[in-house]
Design a protein around this nucleic acid. Structure first.
Lengths: 226, 226
DNA sequence: TCCCCGGCTGAGCGCGATCTGAACGGCGCG
DNA sequence: CGCGCCGTTCAGATCGCGCTCAGCCGGGGA
C-alpha cells in the first residue's frame, strides 16, 4: 500500500514517515500544497494523509481540486485542535476521515487501515482467501492456521494481492503500489518476491497470467462480493 | 480490443503503449494529427485516446473530421491541466470522455473500460452469454461458474465475440480488432484460436458461418445478473 | 461422383516471458 | 567489528504462447 503524506511540520512529518514506513506502507512526502497536488495527480496512492495548514496551497484547496478532477483516493485530514471550521470545509471538500492533532500514531494507523478497507469494499478487518488469512492490525498472516514468517516486502505484496484478490494485477501496478516514487521500473524484483511468496504460501495460490500479471485466486466458497 | 493512441510526447506515449498493451489492448500509435487522422480513417479502432496538443493537425480538428465523416468510435481526450477551453471544444467536437494530465494509468484504463462498455450498449460491467461470463475488470471468464484458463489471445478473442454476440464476425474483422497494424493477413491463426477456444468453452458456443465468419450465439433464457 | 474451396486440427518451432538459484551490498544489532 | 537478514541484481534455465505448416474433412457445384 502506498500513502502520500502531506505535512509541513518537519519533525512531525519525519516521525510519521517513519511510523508509516514501519507499518509497511510505501510513503511519499509532500511539504507544501503545490507538491502535494502534483504528487497526488501523478502517482497512484492508495490513501492520502493531508495536513490542512500548508504553505503555497491550502490543504482544503488541494483536496477540492483532486475531487473536482474526479479522484476518489481516500483522504484523511489532519487538523489542529479546535479548528472546527477547517474540519467542516474539509469534509465538504471530500475528505473521508479526520484526526485532530495531537494524536496517537496508533490511532492514525487504525484509521488508515479502516479507510483502505472501506475503499476496497471489504467489510471484515482481516482478509482471507482460501486457507490464507491476513490481519492488517497485527501485520500477520497465516496459511490454514499456521503463522507465516514474511519479510516486510513479502507481506506488503501479499497484502496488496489479498486486497484485490480475483483481479489480475500487473507487475506495473504492483511496483507502483509497493514502492515509493523512485524505483527502477525494469527490474525483476516483483518476480523474485512472487517466487518467494509462493514458496511460503504454497505454489498454487498465486496464478501467473502471462503477459498480464498475477492473480490471487479466491477459492470456491468465498463470500465477499467485488 | 484495439486502441489508437495519439500522443506526441515520446516518454508518455511509450509508457501508455506499454500499459495499454499490458491491459490486453492491441495498440497503434500516432505521433501527430496527420498520422492520427489517417490511421483513424483506415483502421477500425474500438476506442481512441487522443492528446490535444499535436503537431501538424490539432487534436480537436482531427476529432471534428472523424465525426464529420461519420465515425462514432468512442474518443477519450487527454488535456493538459487547466486547459479548460480545450476541454469544452473537445466535447463540442464529439469527445466521449476526457482526462486531464497528469493522470493515473489505472484511471485511464478504467475510463477506457467504461467507454468500451458504453459504446457496446452494455450496461453491466460483466458480459454474459449462455453459461458464459466474462469480467473485463478481472480479466477472467467462466463457463457455468467454472473459471476458464485462457491465454491472452484467447481471452481477447472471446471478449470481442461476447461484445458482439449474435452478430456474425468475419475473420478479417477479428484480425483487425485483435492485432495491431502489421499482421500477416493470410494466416489461419484465427481459425486455430477459435478452435482452441471451442475446446475450452464447449464446441457449440461459437457457430461457424461458412464464407462469412463466426457468431457467438446468445442462447435463449438470459437473465444476466450484473 | 469428383473436385475445389473453405474450414479444422494436431504437431512443432522460436521467442519472449517468467522463474530460480546464487551472489552482492546495505543496514541494524549484538 | 562481525554476523545475519533483507532487498536487489544477474544470468541461465525453463516454459508457455502465438504462429506456421501440412494434411484432413465436408459441402456444394459441375
Amino acid at each position: 500500500m502506498r500513502v502520500l503524506l502531506v505535512e509541513d511540520d518537519v519533525d512531525l512529518s519525519r516521525q510519521l514517515k517513519l511510523a508509516l514506513g514501519d507499518a509497511g506502507y510505501a510513503v511519499d512526502h509532500a511539504a507544501d500544497g503545490e507538491e502535494a497536488h502534483f504528487l497526488g495527480d501523478t502517482e497512484p496512492y492508495d490513501v492520502v494523509v493531508l495536513d490542512l495548514g500548508l504553505p503555497k496551497i491550502d490543504g482544503v484547496s488541494v483536496l477540492e481540486r483532486w475531487r473536482r478532477d474526479g479522484k476518489t483516493t481516500p483522504v484523511l485530514i489532519l487538523t489542529a485542535r479546535g479548528a472546527w471550521s477547517d474540519k467542516v470545509s474539509g469534509f465538504d471538500a471530500g475528505a473521508d476521515d479526520y484526526l485532530t492533532k495531537p494524536f496517537h500514531t496508533e490511532e492514525l494507523l487504525a484509521r488508515l487501515r479502516a479507510l483502505l478497507r472501506r475503499s476496497a469494499g471489504i467489510a471484515s478487518a482481516t482478509l482471507s482467501c482460501g486457507g490464507l488469512r491476513l490481519d492488517p492490525r497485527a501485520a500477520r498472516a497465516t496459511v490454514s492456521g499456521e503463522p507465516l514468517r514474511l519479510t516486510s516486502l513479502e507481506y506488503r505484496l501479499l497484502h496488496y494481492l489479498m486486497m484485490h484478490q480475483g483481479r489480475v494485477i500487473s507487475r506495473t501496478e504492483l511496483v507502483e503500489h509497493l514502492y515509493d516514487q523512485d524505483f527502477d521500473r525494469d527490474s525483476n524484483t516483483i518476480e523474485v518476491f512472487v517466487g518467494r511468496l509462493r514458496k511460503k504460501i504454497g505454489p498454487d495460490r498465486i496464478e501467473t497470467v502471462r503477459g498480464l500479471g498475477y492473480r490471487l485466486t479466491p477459492l470456491a466458497g468465498e463470500s465477499d462480493g467485488t
